[in-house]
């Protein structure tokens, strides 16, 4: 038996909107730690890791570890039917081939339940080691989204370089080239507007903008984004989910031949 009650249901709606275009089907894993997911995109270039910790739910009952295969597009369709202020409860019985999403309006005058069919998904689970990164950039998530969008109108790939001077996003295409440099800036009114760069080693890595643009669908989840880079390793683009956990996107770099 599984019953997870999330008062801020809009968080789950935003989570689905942030990953449904990157990943088609995925197993949601439920354990005493929380509600989590790990999935690769269909071309196996990017990986999404989601964690919603059990403490973030108002009620969290998970009698035994459970893995539920869901089509994310269908799940997003159902969650779209929940109001932004609704409380969402996820329910499943042991051995059932369905999951139920219950939506309660804040005033309790409208209660809906949507039952979705589960599916068997044979997915690889990858072990992601805790790593020390050469450079970590924290910046406003809207700024990162803007940069990825702007650069993708010029080129297909972005080179992200971190030096003492700041973080540089560069692209080249048929019509020309573009460079955007963001300097460390901590003298802002609101801490979330700051750009903070922690650098151990200079880093320069190239990525497909097609994927970074998918990642920025998570912008509504958090006002800041953290980009962790090490030479020749996948980048981690992390959006924290208020008090509850995170959505992390991992993307393999493009290597010059």
């Amino acid at each position: 038996m599984l019953e997870l009650r999330l008062v801020q249901g809009s968080l789950l709606k935003k989570v689905l909107e942030s990953i449904k275009e990157l990943v088609n089907d995925a197993n949601f894993d439920c354990s005493s730690t929380g509600f989590s997911l790990q999935a690769m995109d269909s071309s196996h270039v990017a990986l999404v890791a989601l964690l919603l910790r059990s403490e973030g739910f108002e009620h969290y009952r998970c009698d035994r570890n459970l893995s539920m295969g869901m089509n994310l597009n269908n799940m997003a369709k159902m969650l779209k039917c929940a109001g932004n202020d609704d409380i969402i409860t996820i329910k499943a019985d042991d051995g059932s081939d369905t999951v139920t999403f219950m939506f309660e309006s804040p005033t309790q005058d409208k209660i809906s339940d949507f039952e979705m069919k589960l599916m068997d998904i044979d997915s690889e689970h990858l072990g992601i080691p805790e790593a020390e990164y050469d450079a970590i950039v924290r910046m406003p998530s809207a700024e990162f989204a803007r940069i990825c969008k702007d650069l993708s109108s010029i080129g297909d790939t972005v080179v992200i370089s971190v030096t003492k001077e700041g973080v540089k996003f560069s692209t080249k295409g048929d019509i020309g080239a573009a460079n955007i440099v963001c300097r460390q800036n901590t003298t802002v009114d609101k801490p979330d507007d700051a750009t903070v760069i922690e650098m151990k080693e200079p880093v320069s890595l190239q990525f497909a903008l097609r994927y970074t643009n998918f990642f920025t669908k998570a912008t509504p989840l958090s006002s800041t984004v953290t980009i962790s880079l090490s030479n020749e390793l996948p980048v981690v683009v992390e959006y924290k989910i208020a008090e509850m956990g995170y959505v992390r996107f991992y993307l393999a770099p493009k290597i010059e031949e």
């Binding site: 196996h44 690889e124 991992y250 393999a252 493009k254 290597i255």
Partner: peptide, 14 residues
């Protein structure tokens, strides 16, 4: 020319 490798090249299957 740059080449895109899969993410599974970097992380082992558990």
């Amino acid at each position: 020319c740059s080449r895109q490798f899969p993410i599974s090249l970097y992380f082992a299957t558990t």
